[in-house]
Each structure stands twice: as structure tokens, then as C-alpha cells.
């Protein structure tokens, strides 16, 4: 069997391990969906009336705001799930199972690949829950079949990128708590982008940051696909950020993982 085939088989085994974990501890999936759902309900029912009126639009109010906020909340789910991945990787690193894997004749990269693919599955499940809740509270996307395919493709790319970054940060962290804290900025970035309000309502310095950070093009592209708003150059920026984050995260994670444990 070729080295590539070995790596594929080992990755599939590690993915199965992650999916078993997911089935045994469903609370992890629910937690990843829980935080965004709370944010969604808070921003729709408590703040939505005012924010919707502030945004203007055809009708203003809560109905307008639900459609505006959902793409940001969906991406917040990716950030929450990435934090869960970081915790999971850090636990593996500190609990000794990885030391056991290192002594076995398995492809080194498969341990990380298993985490990434498992997390991808889990995050898509969490996003499905969040989207379901959004539809219940009045979200009305105008996307056709092709747009929905685009949405799924975009979300897979974003999750893939953020998960590799989370894996790298978890390998860098010395403990589970540190891994969790390192990923907190990912939770805040959708709020400091166009997730909850348009960036042009922010002060100049903050607006510049909000416009150029990764989550704003992610959100604007997703919003465009779901709601038919203009996407412009955001799609290219979103794909560029995904490629950059995924590649950077992968190479960094691989380098950190291949170091000897004592280093």
C-alpha cells in the first residue's frame, strides 16, 4: 500500500475516533450551537427592534434585523466550534494519547486531519441547528438551489480554515485553559465585523479594521448568497482569507506537531 493510501486509511480511522467522541458527548455539539443561539435570541428579541429600526430598510424593526443578523450568527457558530476543537486537541496533547499515537506506525498528519474533519462535521451539524432556530424566529432567505450550494461550499471552506488555525493554536498552548483563551478573539471578531451592524456606522479607525478583517468578507458573501444583497469583491477576499488561514494553520500545526514532545 502506498504512503498516500496509508495516510488516507489512518486519517479515516482518526476521523472515526472523533465521530465516536461526538456521538458519546453530544453536549459538545450542542454547546457549539448554544452560544450562537443565545446571541441570536438576544439580538433578535431584545435588541432587534431597535437595531432593525436603526438599520432602516423597507420595513425596519425586528423582521429586517433577523435577516441581517443571521449570517453573522452562523459564522459565530464556526468560531465557537473552533474553540471546541482547540480544547479537544489540547486535551489530547495533555492526556498522553498523542504520545501513544507517536509510538504507533500511523501517518503523523492523520491525528490532526482526524480532528479537522471531525470538527468540520460537528460544526456543520451545529450550523444546521442554528439555521433551524433562525428559520423558527423569522429568518427568510431568498437563496435558490445554486446559492444554497454556494453557501454550503463557503461554510465548509471557512470551517476548514478556522479549524486548522484552532488546531495550531491548541498545539501552541500549554494547557486546555490556555487553548480556550487563545481562541476567544475568534468569538469577538464577528461582532467587530459587519455581523451585527454595518461597518459604516462605526468610528473611522474601527471601521477600517472591521472592513479588512476576515469575518467581514465572510459575512458579506454569506449574506449575499442567502439574501441576494450585492457581494462585490467580498467573495474573492473571503476565498483569499480562507486559503491563507487554512494554509498558514496547516503548516504551523504540522510543524508544531512534528516537534519532539520535550521541546
Amino acid at each position: 500500500m502506498s504512503a498516500a493510501a496509508h495516510a488516507f486509511t489512518d486519517s479515516a480511522t482518526m476521523l472515526r475516533r472523533q465521530l465516536r467522541h461526538m456521538l458519546r458527548y453530544p453536549t459538545l455539539t450542542l454547546t457549539a450551537a448554544g452560544v450562537p443561539v443565545v446571541f441570536l435570541l438576544l439580538f433578535v428579541y431584545v435588541l432587534g427592534g431597535i437595531l432593525g429600526s436603526g438599520l432602516g430598510g423597507p420595513s425596519g424593526g425586528r423582521d429586517t434585523y433577523v435577516n441581517y443578523v443571521v449570517p453573522g450568527v452562523i459564522l459565530m457558530t464556526a468560531a465557537t466550534a473552533a474553540q471546541g476543537t482547540a480544547i479537544s486537541v489540547a486535551m489530547d496533547m495533555t492526556e498522553g494519547i498523542v504520545a501513544r499515537f507517536r509510538t504507533m506506525a500511523i501517518a503523523r498528519v492523520s491525528v490532526l486531519t482526524g480532528h479537522v474533519l471531525g470538527s468540520l462535521t460537528q460544526t456543520l451539524l451545529s450550523m444546521t441547528i442554528v439555521t433551524g432556530v433562525a428559520l423558527l424566529v423569522g429568518f427568510e432567505p431568498t437563496a435558490g438551489f445554486a446559492e444554497w450550494l454556494g453557501v454550503i461550499g463557503l461554510l465548509v471552506l471557512i470551517i476548514f480554515a478556522l479549524t486548522w488555525l484552532a488546531v495550531a493554536l491548541a498545539l501552541k498552548a500549554r494547557s486546555v485553559a490556555a487553548a480556550s483563551n487563545m481562541l476567544t478573539p475568534l468569538m469577538v471578531l464577528p461582532m467587530m465585523g459587519s455581523g451585527f451592524v454595518p461597518t459604516d456606522s462605526m468610528p473611522a479607525g474601527l471601521q477600517w479594521f472591521a472592513d479588512y478583517q476576515p469575518f467581514t468578507p465572510f459575512i458579506e458573501t454569506l449574506r449575499g448568497l442567502l439574501m441576494g444583497t450585492p457581494i462585490g469583491n467580498n467573495a474573492n477576499l473571503a476565498l483569499g482569507w480562507c486559503a491563507l488561514i487554512a494554509l498558514g494553520g496547516y503548516l504551523w500545526a504540522k510543524k508544531l506537531y512534528n516537534r519532539e514532545p520535550t521541546q
Binding site: 435588541l47 427592534g49 431597535i50 437595531l51 432593525g52 429600526s53 436603526g54 438599520l55 432602516g56 461582532m191 467587530m192 451585527f196 451592524v197 454595518p198 456606522s201 462605526m202 468610528p203 474601527l206
Partner: peptide, 22 residues
Amino acid sequence: LLFVYIFGDTMSAGITGGPGDR
């Protein structure tokens, strides 16, 4: 800081019904 600098203008516009004023 979050509500003033990020949501402030939109919130103000929604509350007063006029232009946003942080």
C-alpha cells in the same frame, strides 16, 4: 465599549428615529 463604538450609532438611530448619534 462594544455597545457604544460598534452598535452605538445604529442603536441611537433606532431609539430616536433620527440620524445615529453615538
